[in-house]
Design a binder for these strands. Structure first.
Lengths: 138, 138
DNA sequence: AAGTTAATGCACTTCCATTGCACTATAATT
DNA sequence: AATTATAGTGCAATGGAAGTGCATTAACTT
């Protein structure tokens, strides 16, 4: 039984062939990818299946969804030990306006935010837009 | 000549009747609004016109666009003296998952973010999701 | 192996953002 | 004031992405 199969089972997901492949594809990425990107990697699979696969991953804490401000949802595998639910564990994301790639800066945690009275924070999303190291040429 | 007309002219925008009305409508709001909201306020005007009006406002620094993670763009008038372009002037936004309203917390500035080498920041977007004071009942 | 439950694929819908083009109003020029 | 240029507005249509319903197929259970 492969590593991926074990991982999926551990998270309470039935390890189908499709899911293993999608997991593998996500693991290959060094950036967060859009559903369309995944779709291009699996021309034979249906978009809906990929959509639901990713959603399932998300619900089970295997993937986190990133809103980088482009209006297109991006997805990335959670790091080992990542706990997306815990606010303190949230990291920031960087979106390159040149190559349009979005990366997780997992080592950069989001600072504590103070809110006005009566406001209750459940989730924090911090996206920095600019030029990534690949594009800035430095 | 009305205040609004003057404001528009100062920003280099031709002060048409439509634009003054849209400005007025935005000024009334205490939250950031979606294009659809503006559309509902002006049933006689075309959606495209409103769309382009808001875009014009945005390009000329009268309005800033907010991506609150719902996938729907929200717009809000810039505060007097607001300079959306200057990174230090960026404030955070709060999106209530109960009433679906998005507010600008202009007094809450975004802390300085450190990035890995080679990354150049141009813009920072910080959205906190949770329950707003109206909905939390406190 | 039979039956139950979940996953997949297809078709379709919805929602918002955006564009092209014709028409109209505004501002500039004579 | 009439003419021309420039910019704004409205209508129609397109496109992209997210999401849903249902029939089919595959995966687990006993």
């Amino acid at each position: 039984m492969s590593d991926i199969t074990t991982t999926l089972k551990t998270k309470g997901i039935r390890p189908t062939a499709m899911r293993s492949l999608v997991y593998q594809e996500l693991a290959k990425q060094d950036t967060a990818v859009a559903l369309t990107d995944i779709e291009l990697a699996f021309t034979k699979a249906d978009r809906t299946t990929l959509y639901r696969t990713v959603k399932t991953f998300e619900e089970n804490g295997i993937v986190h969804q990133i809103d980088d401000g482009t209006g297109i949802s991006k997805y990335a595998l959670c790091e080992p030990g990542c706990n997306c639910e815990i606010e303190n564990d949230l990291h920031l994301h960087f979106h390159c306006s040149n190559c349009d790639k979005t990366v997780c800066l997992t080592e950069h945690k989001i600072p504590q935010i103070s809110l006005p009275d009566g406001y209750v924070a459940e989730d924090v999303n911090l996206v920095v837009k600019g030029i990534c190291s690949d594009c800035s040429g430095s």
